[in-house]
Amino acid sequence: MEVSLNFSGGAELLFGKIKQHTISLPAEETWSMKKLLNWIKDNLLKERPELFLQGDMVRPGILVLVNNADWELVGQLDYLLQNKDEIVFISTLHGG
């Protein structure tokens, strides 16, 4: 299963300043957003994990969009990923 991840608003600073990532996940498993966050932590996050995650959740102040819609509309951590999904993380915690 292929999923596109985009980090912006300063969140990319925690991922080696790379904004766009395309990842492949084993399609035989079910992937919830909760599981994806853990995967990101183990595989992509380069520094200061506490600035991205707080427990199982993204840190409050980081906005998440699933296919261009607020993840609060689709169940947040319980959302089940589909092939070709586009997930966007926008930090609001960084200044201008």
Binding site: G9, L13, L63, L65, V88, I90, S91, T92, G95, G96
Partner: peptide, 21 residues
């Protein structure tokens, strides 16, 4: 709300810069 400002910029594709001091 900050969330709305950021999503407004995102959906309108407004160009801004985010950084850490």
């Amino acid at each position: 709300y900050e969330k709305e400002i950021v999503l407004y910029a995102y959906f309108k594709k407004l160009d801004y810069f985010a950084t850490e001091c």
